[in-house]
């Protein structure tokens, strides 16, 4: 199964958000080395970051993003106690999420 990890790191009034998702990110053109059959496409399509339920940023992607994708962003205006939530949905309908409150850190 897939796993989603996030980390918040407040620095100089901004908050760094790092995201690591365990996901194969298959683009559908790779072949299984033993059976020579195409490995079906399996990649994350959308990623959404929200602050207290309000979308801060969203991303659309496909198979050109590396396996087990890593992203980092800098968020502004995040205060102690704010809930940061990361959601993703892939092309096979699977989804994952992770959330963290800024207060948990300080």
């Amino acid at each position: 199964m897939t796993k989603t990890k996030i980390r918040l790191n407040p620095k100089n009034g901004k908050t760094e958000l790092k995201i690591l998702i365990a996901h194969p990110m298959e683009h559908g053109r790779n072949r299984d080395l033993e059976t020579q059959e195409l490995i079906p496409a399996h990649f994350i399509k959308t990623l959404t970051v929200s602050q207290n339920g309000k979308t801060v940023l969203s991303a659309q992607m496909a198979g050109s993003i590396s396996k087990n994708p890593y992203f980092a962003f800098w968020l502004k205006g995040i205060e102690n106690g704010d809930l940061i939530r990361v959601n993703w949905v892939d092309n096979q309908g699977l989804s994952g999420s992770a959330e963290q409150r800024l207060a948990e850190l300080s």
């Binding site: 993003i65 590396s66 994708p69």
Partner: peptide, 23 residues
Amino acid sequence: PVPLAAIFTLSENADHFVSAQLK
């Protein structure tokens, strides 16, 4: 083969910065 890797839509609460890994 698929040139677009990702497109990020940023709100005013997101800094103009993106870090990712490409194939």
